[in-house]
Design a protein around this nucleic acid. Sequence first.
DNA 1: TCAGTTTCTGACCTTTCGGTCAAAATAAAA
DNA 2: TTTTATTTTGACCGAAAGGTCAGAAACTGA
Lengths: 208, 208
Amino acid sequence: MSARAQGSKKRTRIQVQNEQRIMDAALEVFSTYGYRGSTVDQIAQRAGLSKPNLLYYYAKKQDIYVAVLEHTLSDWLQPLTKLDPEGEPAEQLWNYIECKLELSRSAPKASRLFANEMLHGAHNIEPYLRGELKSLVEEKCGVIQVWIDAGKLKPIAPVHLLFMIWATTQHYADFDAQIKALCQDKREECFGKASTTLKTIFLDGLLP
Amino acid sequence: MSARAQGSKKRTRIQVQNEQRIMDAALEVFSTYGYRGSTVDQIAQRAGLSKPNLLYYYAKKQDIYVAVLEHTLSDWLQPLTKLDPEGEPAEQLWNYIECKLELSRSAPKASRLFANEMLHGAHNIEPYLRGELKSLVEEKCGVIQVWIDAGKLKPIAPVHLLFMIWATTQHYADFDAQIKALCQDKREECFGKASTTLKTIFLDGLLP
DNA sequence: TCAGTTTCTGACCTTTCGGTCAAAATAAAA
DNA sequence: TTTTATTTTGACCGAAAGGTCAGAAACTGA
C-alpha cells in the first residue's frame, strides 16, 4: 500500500522524514522550473530517492505539486492575520509591508511558486482563493475601511491597497532576475533601499 | 531552405503573413502555459499550420519563443522613453503609471509572457536586460534624481520607484486569477478603482 | 506555359517523461 | 527468531513531444 493512501493511520518515522525531504526538493524544483518544466526524476534526485520510491509517497506528480503548494500557503496567509484593528493604521500597515518584504527576502522560492501558479490560472488553489483567502481579505478590508471612515487613512479602495502591498513586496522575489540586472547594490543594501522607498511612498506619497 | 535561414533576403507575402500568425499564436499559447507547458503542435494548430510547416519558419521551439519575446519587448519599453525631464514630475509619473496600467489591461498576455520569463531566470532576455533596458533605466533614474534634487519629489531611490510602478501595474495582468477571485467588480470598474487608488497612494500617500 | 523556387505535408524517428509492477530489501512486531 | 508490514528498486510500458526528411503541391517570374 502506498504511504499516502493510508490516510489517518499514524505516520512512520521514515515516512515523515521522506515526505519532508520531498517537500523541500519539490519547492526547490517547482519554483525554479514551473510545473511542466519540472520532472519527477529531478525532484526524486534532489530528495535523494529513486523515482519509484518517490511515487510510493505521492502517487502522481500533481499530488506532489498540490502538497507543496498547500504546505506553503499557510505561511503566506499568516502575516495578514496580524493586522490589528485596534492599532494605529500607519504602524499596522507598515508592519505588514515590512513583514511581507522580509518574506520575499527569506522565502523567495515560495513566492515564485505562487506567482507561477497564479500566472497560469491558479487552477490548483482555486478553492483556497475563493475560500480561506477571500474571507480573510474581506475581514481585513473591513478593518481598513473602518480606518478610512474614521479619517485615519485617505479614501482608497482597501482591496487595491492590499494588491499594491502584495505586488510591491513580492516583486523582489518574483522578478529577482530583473532586479539583479538593474540594481548593482548588494542584496542587503537593495532590500534596505526598497524598504525605505516603500515606506516613504506608501505612507507619505511622492510629493513633498 | 527554411524561411528564416534566408537572412536578409526580401520576405515573401506568405512568409510575412505566416510569421505574423505564428507570433500571435505563440504569444497566446506561451503566455498561457509557459515555455515547457506549451507544445509546438499547440502553436501550429492555433496558427492554422501543420507542425512541420511551422518548423519550416522557425526551426526550433526556442526560436519561436525568443522571437515572440523580442517581438513584444519593444512595446514594453516604449512608455518609459516618454518620461519627459522637462515636464512636471507628478504629471509625468502619473502619465507613465496610467500608461502601464492600460497596457496591463489591453495586453495582459505580453505581461504574463515576461513575468513567466523573469520568474524562471530570464535566461532568454539577459542581453536585453543588461543592455537596452539597463541603459534606459539608468537614464530615467537620472531624470528622477534631478527632480528629487530640485525638491520636486521626496528623496527616494529612483530605481525602486520604477520597481514599484512596474510591480503594481503589471500585477493586474500577471495575477489576474487572484484578482478575479477577490474582486467581485466588473473588469472596467476594477481597473477604475485601481487607477484612483494608485494615484492617491503614489502621489499623496495613505495618511491624510 | 514551363522551369525554378517556395511552401507544405505525411510518415517517421528518437528522446523524455509520467507512471506501473513484481519482487527484493529493510524495518517493526510478536 | 520468525512473521508481518513497510520501504525500495530495476526493469519496463505507453504516450507525448521535439524534430527530420523526401517528396508533393503551390506559387512566381520569364
